[in-house]
Design a protein around this nucleic acid. Sequence first.
DNA 1: TAGGAGTGTGCCGAAATGGGAAGAGCTATG
DNA 2: CATAGCTCTTCCCATTTCGGCACACTCCTA
Lengths: 335, 335
Amino acid sequence: MGRAMTKSTNDREPTSESVETVSIGSGTADDLKTRVSWLYYMESKTQDEIAQIVGSNRSKVLRILAQARADGTVQIRVTSRLSRCVELEAELKSRYGFETVIVVPTPQDPVDLPGIIGSELGAYLSQRIGPDMSIGLGWGRTLTSGIPAIEQRQPSGVSVISLLGGLTKVSRVNPSDFAWRAADRLAAECYMVAAPVFAPDAASREALMNHHGIAEVLDRARRLDLAVVSVGDLSPDSIFTRYGLLTHEEIISLERAGAIGDVLCRFIDSEGNVIDHPVNDRVLAVHPADLGGAREVILASGGWSKLTAIRAAIKLLEPKVLITDSVVAERIAVD
Amino acid sequence: MGRAMTKSTNDREPTSESVETVSIGSGTADDLKTRVSWLYYMESKTQDEIAQIVGSNRSKVLRILAQARADGTVQIRVTSRLSRCVELEAELKSRYGFETVIVVPTPQDPVDLPGIIGSELGAYLSQRIGPDMSIGLGWGRTLTSGIPAIEQRQPSGVSVISLLGGLTKVSRVNPSDFAWRAADRLAAECYMVAAPVFAPDAASREALMNHHGIAEVLDRARRLDLAVVSVGDLSPDSIFTRYGLLTHEEIISLERAGAIGDVLCRFIDSEGNVIDHPVNDRVLAVHPADLGGAREVILASGGWSKLTAIRAAIKLLEPKVLITDSVVAERIAVD
DNA sequence: TAGGAGTGTGCCGAAATGGGAAGAGCTATG
DNA sequence: CATAGCTCTTCCCATTTCGGCACACTCCTA
């Protein structure tokens, strides 16, 4: 046999009786996904058997299962923690005064990291968010990949506020969708900054900031219950270069000015100060300093390449919650 | 390929570099399980790769993974619900006034059912139990298999009270361990009835009931926050016959007296009344009627064979929470 | 009517599985 | 103290099952 799920030793014959139990009778459209996932993960049936039961073929079942894993319909969690990670969490808590620290083991392949930190974030948010909370959200791969891990729920007065403008160029996977998609999961109202993150120049930024809708959103952002932010670096595959938000020259110029990364698209130096640079004057986003009004700031970011930026962001934001990976945690713990 | 986990399209070579990331460095004893589970489910490595990394062989990795799934170290959940189940939940809520109803699809193989209902129960309890709560627990396969799904937590003043005596014959899998194992998960204090469920006769039962320790436990059971019970039937593979708690003659006699099942080892008729029978006078357990003092009674049980018993138990206990399967739910909904 | 998305089929190599056999470590017993 | 019995581990093998891929087909839309 070749399946990851346990199958008890007995081998009841499929007996080709496609008679369905009342329970798993066909329902509406995407019940199919639930049903297939259920049969596979809960009842440990093979994909072939499932194909028989739902009247389809393996390929489709396979596709559905892949999608189910991707969109969070099935969630796989390792509940126990590595002792080293637990140690690091304790160290960081006492050294920096964090209320909560979550340290995940750094994966061997760095591309997995945003996903892993993201799902940890999602799980944390799911149990942290209560009725009528207002939640401010940033951006980024880390945050985006946390969405599937946010548990779907009934409306309960939660509101989600996007802390930054969006992308103008709407790419297929728009990271600034994050707020909207998170709001969808939470059945929350969603307030978005209906403008690009980077205004053409400081003047138009000023104009937009005073715009009615935008001003309201930014105002809400000043009295948040939770603020979730990530940090960015200036590496070649940062969002800025990947989405063409900034030119190569601008990046260089920022580096010269001492920038080592960004928080909410505001570029900061290694001491956690927002640097003085023209690009920073064009940003349509809540200023990191304004997050002080939030009752709980959550910083979720990891990876060796972001170490300095994370260090700086901690100084700047003084978050209550930190979610990161063990490599970063090890280094920060000995600072 | 033959694995249940998605593997992204790229195939980075294993490169035989057994160099470990700092993060996943070796730790204490059962870190191994965590580590293996992590590598498998989070980093989508093959069992071979993992064997290399942790310095072992496939077989062991395989076994560790199986154990990890069994003991809840890795949890796989299907988060979406079948629409039919949601409908049934709503119907039952309005018809019987339950506060919460959870209906799971009936599996094709009935042996899976206790496990499925159990994990749903475990998940519910995990999010329901708060600091300093006192929780009364019954017994049974359903309840036992819920343990892995109870999230491990830090001590917070929770106390667990066993609502029944134990088995004298200690078999390998003692279902009356349930309370103790649940307490372990919850880092809770555990109060057990240190006596067999069935006393030899009514007189010795009386004597035991007045015993200091036992009386205290039974007293605690009268002021519970949560009471979790299941129901039993009189089928040939009920606990009573399987563990030889009652003789065949006694079962027959109980049936003649109108018994259709039991709640906390008290036999009841189809109207939900505890019947008048010698066996019921020998039970060392909290009386179902005494559960009225609990702030929330949770009834978790399912399966066609238990339908009548569940009906009766609902009348008797009037629980606030019902966890069952769709076959039972369908029937109860049209009562 | 042409394109495109979604579906059904078949095939292949890689992975996973459950035993079975051989070896190591431990216990109980003479 | 030695040895037979037992369990647990490790190693190996035959089968099943997976996941991806290529391709033909259908149904819907532009």
